[in-house]
Design a protein around this nucleic acid. Sequence first.
RNA 1: GGCGCAUUAGUCUAGUUGGCCUAGGACGCCGCCCUCUCAAGGCGGAGAUCGCGGGUUCGAAUCCCGCAUGCGCUACCA
Length: 503
Amino acid sequence: MRGYYRKAASYGVFRKAEPETLGKADLMVRVRFAPSPTGYLHLGSARTALFNWLFARGQGGSVVLRIEDTDVGRSSREMEEAILFDLRWLGLDWDEGPDVGGPHAPYRQSERGEIYREHAALLEEKGLTYPCYCTPEELQEKKERALSEGRTPIYDGTCRELSSARRRELEEQGRRPAVRFRVPEREVSFQDLLHGFVRFPPDSIGDFVLIRSDGRAGFHLAGVVDDATMGITHVIRGEDHLTNTARHLLLFDALGYTPPMYLHHSLLLGPDGGKMSKRHGATAVREYREMGYLPQALTNYLALLSWSPPEGREVLDLQELLELFDIGDLSSSPAVFDRERLDWLNGKHIRRMSLSEVVEAARGFAPEWSGHALFPVMVESVLDNITTLGDLPRYLQTYGTKAPPDEKTAEWLRGEVAVRVLEKAADILDRRELADLESAREVVGELKRAFAEKDVKPREILMPLRVALTGKDHGPGLHYLLYVLGKGECLRRLRQALAGSDA
RNA sequence: GGCGCAUUAGUCUAGUUGGCCUAGGACGCCGCCCUCUCAAGGCGGAGAUCGCGGGUUCGAAUCCCGCAUGCGCUACCA
């Protein structure tokens, strides 16, 4: 479903291949992230933010961060801070926002009540609004009745034409009205930058609430007013907002503002095909960070849902993503979140970083080891085994106390060859120092050479040594084991094994 | 129920001006190689009647129509 992008060029989006259009100041791109601080940053929101960011930065445009906290009951400052933190952790940044300020401050909807009231007043003057006294219970009942009778469950317009006497009466009952928008009976259509021409027939939209009975602007009014007054040029959001766009366009029109360009990207689905939610497991960026996923792996993976890079280069950090990403190449069908593919990417990124970077990132995940002088060596030794930093402690256990081998593993210690190998290993160690990784490597080499001509397979030489040292039949390379454990400890373990206490 | 969007292997996708598609790549799976082990890496394999049914055409995953399925919206949530 690609292609609308090119068609959409006349609507103000342009390919990177047409840099000449970038010079036009009136086409300066401004996008926004508009998270609702009702919980931790969701993977889906992060993906939306990523798309916005990649698009804006790719076009040399600016990014506005706006907090949609009109639902005071569910929003909290704590969550707002957590969201900003997680967005930054992912590597995203913004030019204007509640924390950095900007020419269109404030950036929290809860602090923009006056602006919304002014706009609502303007609409009222034009006769485009009316107070609605229906209670939530009544509305719920209407909806259910409509549904059961097979009618469209949109607001039925009960309060649309109330007489002023009737209004007074209801007010006297103590009812506080919400303000509804008088939705005109006409078709609404627009060009979605991804879906192309979309149209909504008249009568498909009910009179929606502009101002809630508590006096606060609802999502539709607040969002439209903010997008208009903040000069947003492109609204990139999830497809769940596609239908809302009709409402928003109507409001832009009523308010006399020019609407932005819209692009609705596909949704992020859980493995069962439903919208990604808690029941599918971890959904918050924060949870993935805590499990040891890397920010560049997350942004990489999220971008790969609905988008694929040219030439098949799939392992990309944010910077590379920025260079290759083109919002017009997004696929319009929904994508299922696949943890295994994320794991693969995370492993790739871990192995792509420099050792010192991994070691720094790893510290918090292995506090019991990070103080060790040879911690970097330990990390290096298990680098190829881990998919997340959270796997570290499990693999590093090899360097801890030696547990007795299980029955099957202990077999490596039995037999004449094994005993001779262990004796020889102890002999070599006795004579040498394990000064560094290289000398440990030499010890392994010398041991192999000592048995090379005797028709003994490498594994018959080295597996007994491995088991004698760790009690396990798998783990980091032997040279790592020797070096990290140290000469004294290695000799002690070898002698213990030779004494037969392991087998 | 209405409206909207979507529909290529278990998953993410390439494919858009119809023929180069006997449908390409990636994850996962299986096998081989490398290797002291586990991994990582390299190589190879299985896996898709391109949702279904019609039509247009010499020729359709690609165009048209219908149907089905999934998801979303239909809130004083965003």
